[in-house]
Design a protein around this nucleic acid. Structure first.
Lengths: 187, 187
DNA sequence: TTTAGTGTGTGACAAACATCACAGTTATGA
DNA sequence: TCATAACTGTGATGTTTGTCACACACTAAA
């Protein structure tokens, strides 16, 4: 259950029972149902979330009312509207459940405390942040260098499970093409 | 001169003279001329660079021989092929001078040492990494939500200096459109 | 069962963008 | 200074993708 966070952290730094209990005390556990919002555009962003189970979408609603998928978050992913979280400003993005979801949330105050009081965790956060940065750059490169069709095939190859778990509309929105175009790509 | 790094770090954490000298001892100073490569595709990535002066482009060469700009790096920016740097693998990207450039380079070994031995710097690196991650996500959103014209206007608004400093071919490549399309957008 | 909502494929057309070709200009180095 | 390369704009044309429209499941709730 919450072993999961421990296991996840221990991929980077080892923890004993006491240390893990200390870490865990900075998080609060929450459960949400399909369609619930964890973060809503325009509201303050209180938490950064570690996903224990379920599936989330991080979305941006544009001026025309269209919805764009900034990213998905599944088991063992960290997600938030990071810009608003770190700046303690209002959310520009929304975070919503695609499936029933369990998460551990950490407030910015606790994030900063934990990093300051326990250098192993500061180290862990740095590793995670660097990895996230690298993943984002990879996605940017895919927009620069690949056609919609190539991005589709790459996603199919790297995350085939998403194609069963998600409606095509959301995949299209993640890839940056219309639903109709995606449908034509798969044939 | 190398005050610049100190000033840059002190935007996040305060340093005394001794601490700064310690930090600086982990870097090596280098000068490059226009067209020189700091990182070449296929070769190991020894350093992460802090740009003191000049201008760099981080580029990806695709299979068709076309060049795509992953990012630019100007004064006070940190740049590398981070994926290859942290994994100590071969570069997939190249880093090349657009203008004569002075940098401070830090090896991964020194980066890790510095972070481990001096928690102020681990804190600094975490802040920088988070900021970089946020900037990347913003760029991803611009690809998802904006047309070429809108991306062009946004870049013009946020970094007008680049339009004097750079040939349009490179700007087009950064925005993900052809040179010709960019030219037609500006009219 | 009916009804409304959601998800999916496909045709017809329009808009955005890439590509190829060419010309004119400005840098740059021998 | 001259020769060459790099940079920029613009027309003609074709490809890719978006938009609108419609049809047909499939699901969930009354």
């Amino acid at each position: 259950m919450s072993h999961q966070l421990r296991k996840h952290i221990e991929e980077v730094v080892a923890l004993n029972d006491e240390e893990y209990a200390f870490v865990l005390s900075h998080f609060s556990k929450k459960a949400y149902r399909k369609h619930d919002f964890l973060i809503r555009r325009g509201e303050p962003v209180k938490y950064c979330y570690f996903v224990i189970s379920g599936l989330l979408k991080l979305i941006y609603d544009d001026a025309d009312g269209k919805q764009h998928i900034a990213s998905f978050a599944m088991e063992n992913w960290w997600e938030s509207d990071f810009a608003a979280y770190f700046a303690q400003s209002k959310a520009q993005l929304s975070l919503q459940c695609i499936e029933d979801t369990h998460v551990l949330g950490i407030s910015l105050e606790n994030y900063n405390k934990l990093a300051a009081d326990f250098s192993k965790m500061e180290h862990f956060f740095l590793k995670k942040s660097n990895a996230g940065h690298i993943a984002s750059q990879k996605r940017i490169l895919s927009f620069l260098t690949s056609s919609a069709k190539e991005r589709y095939e790459q996603l199919l190859k790297e995350h085939p499970s998403l194609f069963q778990r998600l409606p095509k509309t959301l995949l299209a929105s993640y890839l940056g093409v219309s639903r109709e175009t995606l449908s034509r790509l798969s044939s």
